[in-house]
Amino acid sequence: MMKSMITVAALFAASTAAAQDYRFEEGSNARSWNLFAESNATFSGTVVDLTCEITGDCAENCGDGVRQLGILRDFDGVLVNVQKNDQALFTGGVEELLPFCGQQVDVDGLLLTDEDLGAVNMYLVQFIRPHGTEEWTVAKAWTDNWEAAHPEWAGSGRWYRRSGDIRELLDTTGYFGLGQERDAEIKAELFAE
């Protein structure tokens, strides 16, 4: 009887600890993005190809940048979905993680947890380094990598204004996605003086 009660108490303690994201806050130097659902989190884990990890369909070098990546967290085995890097420029996290495909890393950033929306184990990475090393790399490589990969779209202004892929879609479907004719009508309606 006593053994059972101890087991129950241990289970309660484990479940409470597991439900609280602040267990990863200690030691974090992440910068707030002032998001409702954010909490600082630094942890270690292995960089994985999400499609491979979830479905078993694997690719060389985690997909070489065309597949979403995640971090298999050492602490609890949870697969953390890395959504963002640390640039407020509509940029994901893959470029930051890819150099560490299959490797153990330390990361620092923001976890998103919003039960109402179903956000759990989602992450914005701000700093990354090989596990156990001293020097952090700031997770802002996306735009430099994009510029290097697309010299044909070089110029001034944000990348998303210069992307030929996006310009091509905008030229066809417009800003609202409904075609140029509807786009003109909607703009006239929304922006009429």
Binding site: K84, T91, L170, F176, I186
Partner: peptide, 17 residues
Amino acid sequence: GTAHHTCAMWCSAGGIP
């Protein structure tokens, strides 16, 4: 939806899931 369509394209092109 349509209100967020352009941003949805930016984010998709930017590699956001």
